[in-house]
Amino acid sequence: MDSLFNEYWLQLSQLFSNSQQRLYWGYLLSALLISALWLVFIEKGKSTKLNLKSLLISHWLSKSSSADYQVILINKALFLIITPLLITKLYIATLIYEQLHLYIPIRSDLADITPEWLVVTLFTLTLFIFDDFARFFLHKLMHEIPWLWHFHKTHHSADKLTPLTVLRSHPVEGLLFSLRSALVQGSCIAIFIYFFDDKVDLYTVLSVNVLLFIFNILGSNLRHTHIYIRYWHWLEALLISPAQHQIHHSTLPAHFNKNYGATIAVWDKLFHSHCYSQLSDNLQFGLNSKQDSQEHSLYNLYIRAFVDIGKSIRSFLKSPKALKKRSLPD
């Protein structure tokens, strides 16, 4: 029991000390610096109250933020128990690697003729792109498939955004994203090693995929803040800006189901869910503009999804057509 408790605290502390985590102190510091530079040099002191309010202690002690903290603490405990039971990327990689022997019997000379730097570059890039696409696609499904949306609402019920909001998610969503990660990473590992053998490696900085590191150090944590940092439109067509992600959390119906992307905006372009940021930054966050504080209760964060799904099933069994008419989000 003691070791379990110690492991729990270790994992919690690693949220901020492990560079593979979004909330690594280095990324938080860089986000703070970028936001300060933005407010001073770009906004030139013209920031709205909304921007500045997000820096106040009251914002961090709000019901929404308190709910973030509770979810983080509870989910960490849950995943401490669940994680050993989950399918791992190594399991997937081994499975696919074995099957490749049967379905692609000839490996050719790829491993011999391709320079190592090219193999490592390709692997680093492929892993980043596929991981980002999978993240985008599952995120899109979380919004567009009714029963998945019930779970994803836990994340979108946050009306005050802080970098910690990234961890405010229903455990079922956590499980799905864990499976997604295992599938994508396991597949990439298996395919590359099958064809390029021991030449495969990953370019890393602080033990993180170099591209992911760049994404994180350039302010990934600003996505879940009220600091409305926009890019030029040409850049927002390629990469998701913090402002674009804040639009994704907006309660404006026009912003519903927009900007699912994590890093790359091209996926949203391809799937017609892309939305550029606008000059106005008076966004309100949450499930809807009339959201009450009950959305931050543990019941709503954890249990209501199951109750709502149960209702949907009952409703479907009574009248299948009724379900199709439902529009999302709530």
């Binding site: 995943f79 993240r135 990234v166 956590g174 994203f177 992911l212």
Partner: peptide, 21 residues
């Protein structure tokens, strides 16, 4: 022969595997 797989899986790590935006 499976060492490359496990070594690479370890290197990629588990950060952000359960996180969404």
């Amino acid at each position: 022969q499976l060492e490359n797989l496990s070594a690479l899986a370890d290197k990629i790590g588990s950060g952000e595997s359960t996180e969404n935006d």
